[in-house]
Every structure is written in C-alpha cells, then in structure tokens.
C-alpha cells in the first residue's frame, strides 16, 4: 500500500484534538461529515488548508493529537483526504485511533521531520516501511507490526472478534 500526495506542514508541537475538530461538531452517530470542519479549532487552520489545497500528508511537531480521545479527529483527517501524519511523536489515544482508521502514523526523529516540512510531495510505502520525499532517497521508519495489519486490511474489530473464545477461556480460568 502506497500513500502519496502533497504535504501540509504544521511546524508546531501539541496539535490537540480540539484544534483538529472542535467539540461542537461531535454530534453525529456516524463518522461522516467531519472533514469539512477539519482544523476549525486551530487559529490559523483555514489559512493553512487554503495554502496547501489537495494535500494528503501532514507533517507536524511532537505530540500530535494530544487531548481528547475523540476518534472524530482521525475521521476529520480522512474526510479531508489526509491518509498519513508524520511527526516525532503522537499522543497515545490518537496514535491508536489513527491505526484503527487507516491514517498511517509515521514516527521519525525531529531533524528528519524538520527536513520533511520543506518537502512538496511524499510517497509512503506502508508495507516496506519506507518513504521518499520529492523522489529522494528512501527514509526508513517502523510501524507497529500488529496494528499495521489493521491498516492494510481486516480491521481491529474482526481481529478482536476472533479472539473471543480465547478471552472467554481466560476469564473462566481466572
């Protein structure tokens, strides 16, 4: 699986989920309709999106997705066509939500992320865990080998459903 597209750089740490999707949009019982409100809680969000129309990959600072557990943040990114976020670190809950929804969370050292802020396009080879910026040399990264499978197909709920007999057996023996 290749995730490819132009870059939206956000050179700041701590982009929290209230900035990604403000709470007043969390009023649906499905995952739809979030994309059009992406980054409305970010003071310069609309400006950033307008500067990079059609971007598909976000490059951001440390601790991306901190704050609220709202999976709506991942849904808003997907709804706006973002299929990957590259950052030095992610907040735990967003990190899991990203995997569970097929938004590829790529962790790279700060220096590499700083360089990628200047890239125009990035192509991410999810299977081989490498990416290329503007056709340059491949850069290696690593994904969680289990959660990567949820991105590539199948999904976490199917995986867990298959575990139910084992869980019941464990609980009975507890």
């Amino acid at each position: 699986m290749i995730v490819e597209g132009t870059v939206l750089p956000i050179p700041r740490a701590n982009i929290d989920t209230d900035q990604i999707i403000p709470a007043h949009y969390l009023t649906r019982i499905d995952a739809d309709g979030m994309g059009e409100h992406l980054f409305e809680g970010m003071p310069d969000g609309a400006h950033l999106l307008a500067l990079h129309p059609g971007a598909a990959i976000i490059v951001a600072g440390e601790n991306f997705g901190c704050g609220s557990s709202r999976e709506h943040a991942a849904w808003a990114l997907l709804g706006r066509g973002f299929h990957a976020v590259i950052a030095p670190s992610f907040a735990r809950i967003f990190h899991e939500n990203a995997y569970n929804n097929g938004v590829v969370p790529v962790i790279l050292p700060q220096e590499t992320v700083d360089e990628l802020m200047g890239a125009r396009t990035i192509a991410i080879d999810v299977d081989n865990e490498t990416l290329r910026a503007d056709g340059g040399e491949p850069i290696r990264f690593s994904l969680d080998p289990l959660r990567k499978q949820f991105v590539l197909g199948g999904g976490v709920l199917k995986y867990l459903a298959a575990k139910i007999p084992a869980v019941r057996a464990w609980e009975a023996a507890r």
Partner: peptide
C-alpha cells in the same frame, strides 16, 4: 484509561 470509539467497541 481513555481510548477511542473503535477500541471501546472492541
């Protein structure tokens, strides 16, 4: 611990 919607469903 807090988790997302899908993890809670799991």
């Amino acid at each position: 611990l807090g988790i997302g919607t899908t993890a809670q469903a799991g």
